[in-house]
Design a binder for these strands. Structure first.
Lengths: 127, 127
DNA sequence: TACTTGCTTGGAGTGCACTCAAGGGTTTTA
DNA sequence: TAAAACCCTTGAGTGCACTCCAAGCAAGTA
C-alpha cells in the first residue's frame, strides 16, 4: 500500500502553478501562509516546488471555494486533514453543512432567476 | 390611468421597514445615501416615512442582491429607472447580463455539489 | 559577465458591503 | 411631564479575500 518512489517526480514552480490553477502567485503564497496548503517543498535555494499532490489539493480547494465556503472553513478543513484519520467525522460534518448551504444557495438563485425572467419579459420588445 | 389619491396611505418608520425586510436601519440609510433607493419621504421633523412603493422596490432590490449582483450595478439600475422610459433597453441588457451570470453560477454550484457528494460518500460510515 | 526575469519575505494596501459611533433631536408611553 | 425609546447626520471602522510593495537573492540568456 505504500506509494512507489519516483525519481522523475514532476515539480512545478509557483508561476507554473499559477498558470495551471488560475490563482495568482500572491494567492498561492497566501494560502500556504494561512495554512490552507500543506507546507510546500522547497528547492535548495528556497523556492517553492509544487508536486502533483499539491495540484490535486489545490483542485479540491478550488471546488470548495466554488461552493462559497469561507476561507476560514477551508483552513479548518485543511487542519482536520493534517490531524489525521480520527477527524474524519468532523470533516464529513463540515462538508455536509457546506452541502446544505450550497443547496440553499441554488434554490435562492433559482428563485431570483424566475424574477429576472419575469422582469426581462416586461422589457421584451424594447430596442 | 392616474393613481387614485389615498388619504390613508400607509407610511412606515425605518424600524418597521428594517423588521419587514431584514435589512438593518444602517443599511437602509446607506442604500438611500448611495442612490440605491429613491429619496424617501420625510415627516415634518425629518424622519423617514417609507411607503408601500418603497417596500416593493426594496423587495426587488433584495431579489437583485440574491442574484449576487454588485451594489454598483444595482445603483446603476436604479439610476436608469430614474432616468425614464428611454433607458428600458439598457435596463434589459443589465438584467440579461445578470441572468447569464446567475445561470453560470448555478452551473458552477451544481458541479461543486457533485464533488461534495462524492467526497461525503467517501466519509460515509465514519462515526 | 551583464542583464532580465523570477522568486523570497513581512507587512501594507485595496475594494466591497456593510456596520458602528458620537452627539443630538423627536415621539411614545407610564 | 418625564423617562424611555426611536430617529437623525457625518464620518470612521470592520471583516473578508485577496493584492501589492519593497528590498534583496537566484537562475537563465546574450
Amino acid at each position: 500500500m505504500s506509494q512507489s518512489l519516483s525519481l522523475t517526480q514532476t515539480r512545478y514552480t509557483i508561476s507554473e502553478v499559477a498558470a495551471r490553477t488560475g490563482l495568482s502567485q500572491h494567492t498561492l503564497r497566501w494560502y500556504e501562509r494561512i495554512g490552507l496548503m500543506p507546507h510546500v517543498d522547497r528547492s535548495h535555494s528556497g523556492q517553492r516546488r509544487f508536486t502533483d499532490r499539491d495540484l490535486d489539493w489545490l483542485g479540491f480547494v478550488g471546488k470548495l471555494r466554488a461552493t462559497g465556503m469561507s476561507v476560514a472553513d477551508m483552513v479548518r478543513y485543511a487542519e482536520l486533514v493534517r490531524e489525521g484519520e480520527h477527524t474524519r467525522g468532523e470533516r464529513r460534518e463540515l462538508l455536509e453543512r457546506t452541502r446544505r448551504e450550497v443547496r440553499a444557495r441554488i434554490t435562492e438563485l433559482t428563485d431570483a432567476l424566475a424574477v429576472l425572467d419575469y422582469k426581462i419579459d416586461m422589457y421584451a420588445g424594447t430596442r
